[in-house]
Each structure stands twice: as C-alpha cells, then as structure tokens.
Simulated scan of single mutants.
Amino acid sequence: MYGDELADIGDAAAAQIELIDKRLPAYLIHAGMAGAYIGLAVLLVFALGTPMVGTPLEPLRGVVMAGAFGVALSLVIVAGSELFTGNAMIMGVGALEGQTSWAALGRVWTWSWIGNLFGSLLVGAMAAWGGVFSDPTLVYAVAETKMTLSPLELFIQAVFCNWLVVLAVWCSFRLENTIAKLVMIWWCLLAFTGTGFEHSVANMTVLSLANFLQITTGQAAPAAVDWVGMAYNISIVTLGNAFAGLVMMGGAYWYINESYKVDLPNGNPHSGTFSSADDD
C-alpha cells in the first residue's frame, strides 16, 4: 500500500548515513542549513507579529504569524537540508525497512540535532547583534511561556507538533508536483504554529534569540527566560518530537504497510504493491 513511499524514505535514510560516514563536516553543514532556514522563518514570524502588538490588528496576529511560518519547511524540503524533526521519521523508517540500522538512527539524530542547533544559534545571534528587533517584548513573552510549561505539557505539545510536521514530510514523498508539496507543507505548519505546539529546532532560535536580546538591547526579560530554561524546554521537546516522528508516523505507516502484506484467511494475500495513484 505504501511500499513505494517507504522505500524512498529508506533510501533517504541510507543516503544520510553514507554522507556522515564519508564526510561528517559536510553533513553538519547540511544540518546547519536546516536550523538556519527554520531560524529565518522564526525571524519573519516575529518581524510580522511584533508591530501588531497593542494595535487594532492584534486579533489577527496569530493568524499572520502562523501563516508566515510555512516558509520554514518549504525551504528545508525544496532547497534541501537535514532537519532533526523530519529525521525522526525518516531514520525510523530506514531502520524498520532494514535499509539502515538502529545505531545509524542514533547517529543521524545526534548529528542532525547538533547541526540544527548550530544553525539556529547562528541566526539568533546574528539577528540580536544585527538589530533586527529593537523591541524584544513579544520574543520575551513567547520564550517565557515556552520555558514555564510543565514537562507533560511540553511533551504532548511536541508530539502534536511533529506529528503535523512529519505529515508534511510524508506528503512530500507521496507527491510529485512541487506546488502540491508546498500547499501541504503550508497547511500542516499552519496547524502546528497556529495552535502553538512545540518544535525543538524552532525553539532553538526563539529561546536563544530571547537570551541574546537581553545582552544586545539591555532590556531585561522575565526571570524565567535564561539558558537553563532553554535547555529544559528543548530537551523535553526533542523527546516529544522524536516520539511523534518514530511512532505516530514512521512506525504507524510501516506497520500498516506490513499488515497489508499478510495473507488473508481465504488465501488471498494483500500484495502491498499499490502505488500512490492506486490509493487516490
């Protein structure tokens, strides 16, 4: 049923571990690009949202900010880069399909996360010292909320978030048309940002930016906003994002596809060889 998509995802997983084995610095740069692309989208979101605070347009701020974030995953997928949250599904499928190993999953998750962090910190620091935000009020408010949620709240919201993000990635493997891919990316990211769910890589930029702005603007942030709070948020959100990609998406579709191959009691087996077009 989903054999073609799972095979393509498995190939993508194998390609990543091959690059890590051949030239780790190149892979880290590729992952750093993903962190930077997500960070650039974060800057856009706050650049659009900050001027709307305290104005008659403020009720529309959430929609505007959520709608703008679609550029993040659009850049990651169309331009090409390695995003940890997408790899949560991709490497899981690769291991389940036997095209990579579970050890390879751990390596790719680790190095893509580190590369994403580097790209995110770079964008956050450049924005702070570049004077992109003279008014850090909205950034501080969002960062404070993220740093003060309970562990259970963070985990569940991270699961919801990456369920939607990886749905966009999954759809990109099922679709051939670039416009169709971009539409699905936009809808899935609108759902996650509009509801305020937690994305580990986006938070790397948001929370580091809040910390950097305290230095560059001299405006104190709420007491909860600090580097410890950032580490607290991202550590739990990373776990929730990984769980969603591996279990809610990759594992679920793999299990469905494997189950479709099982022989039926009447002796007629499902072949599992239908293409995407046959599903429509």
Rank of each mutant, 00 (worst) to 15 (best):
V53H: 03
G229F: 01
A128I: 14
D21C: 04
G245C: 10
G39E: 02
G86C: 04
N116Y: 01
G196N: 06
G272F: 01
A141I: 02
T50E: 14
A95I: 06
Y232F: 02
L43I: 15
W170L: 15
Y253G: 05
S112E: 06
L83P: 05
L213V: 10
I256Y: 15
V165H: 03
L73P: 15
F84P: 02
T110N: 00
L246H: 05
Q214V: 08
S74W: 06
L28W: 00
A223Y: 12
T110H: 00
V201Y: 01
W227A: 11
A158F: 12
G245A: 11
I114A: 08
L246G: 03
L264I: 12
V139E: 13
V71N: 11
A127P: 14
V76M: 07
T216Y: 14
G49P: 11
T216F: 09
K181I: 08
T145F: 04
L138G: 08
L207G: 08
H30Y: 01
G130S: 13
G272C: 10
A15N: 04
N266L: 07
A168T: 12
I90D: 09
A31K: 09
V63A: 15
D135H: 13
F155Q: 10
G70C: 10
D11V: 02
G119R: 00
A79N: 02
S134F: 04
N162S: 05
L122W: 04
E97A: 15
A26K: 04
G106S: 08
Y260M: 09
L182W: 08
T193Q: 05
S208L: 04
V166Y: 07
I215H: 14
I29T: 00
G32P: 02
A180W: 04
D21M: 10
I185M: 06
F197L: 01
L73G: 15
P222Q: 09
A220G: 07
A7C: 01
M33P: 00
G35Y: 01
M33F: 06
P265V: 06
M230H: 02
L24Q: 02
E153M: 10
V201M: 01
W254C: 07
C161Q: 02
A224K: 14
I215G: 09
P25G: 00
H199E: 02
P25L: 04
M184L: 14
N268T: 10
L264H: 12
W187C: 12
L209Q: 03
L164G: 03
L239S: 08
F84L: 11
Q157G: 13
H30P: 00
T55L: 01
G240F: 08
L154I: 13
M126F: 12
A13C: 05
G10M: 08
